[in-house]
C-alpha cells in the first residue's frame, strides 16, 4: 500500500536506518559503524528491530552499506513476554 506519501512501515524503517547511516558517514570512520548500531539499539523498539532483521534476511534491499555493516552490532530482540 505504498503511495507517494503513505509508505509501509518497512519502507520507513529502511529510510530511517539510512538516514542514521547518512549522519554517521560524515563522522570519523572508526565511530561510524558503532554509531549506527548504538543509535538503533538505543532508540528502536524490539518490533522495529525485528522487522529490520526480517528485511535484512530478505536481502536487505535498499539499505545503505553502513547499515548492513552495523547490523552485526545491532541487538536481536529477545522474546517479549506476554501473549503473541
Amino acid at each position: 500500500m505504498d503511495s507517494e506519501s503513505h509508505k509501509s512501515t518497512a519502507t520507513k524503517l529502511v529510510y530511517m536506518a539510512n538516514q542514521i547511516a547518512t549522519f554517521f558517514h560524515t563522522q570519523p570512520k572508526d565511530e561510524a559503524v558503532a554509531g549506527v548500531a548504538d543509535h538503533i539499539n538505543h532508540f528502536w523498539e524490539p518490533r522495529m528491530r525485528e522487522q529490520f532483521f526480517a528485511i535484512l534476511e530478505q536481502g536487505g534491499d535498499g539499505f545503505d552499506p553502513l547499515v548492513i555493516e552495523a547490523a552485526k552490532h545491532i541487538r536481536k530482540p529477545g522474546l517479549v513476554s506476554g501473549a503473541s
Binding site: 512501515t9 528502536w44 523498539e45 518490533r47 522495529m48 530482540p77 503473541s84
Partner: peptide, 17 residues
C-alpha cells in the same frame, strides 16, 4: 528495551500490532 515513539506507534497500529 526502548518503547515505541509516537510515529512508530502509529506505524505499528497500521500494521496491526
Amino acid at each position: 528495551e526502548p518503547g515505541l515513539r509516537i510515529p512508530n506507534m502509529l506505524d505499528a497500529a497500521v500494521d496491526g500490532t
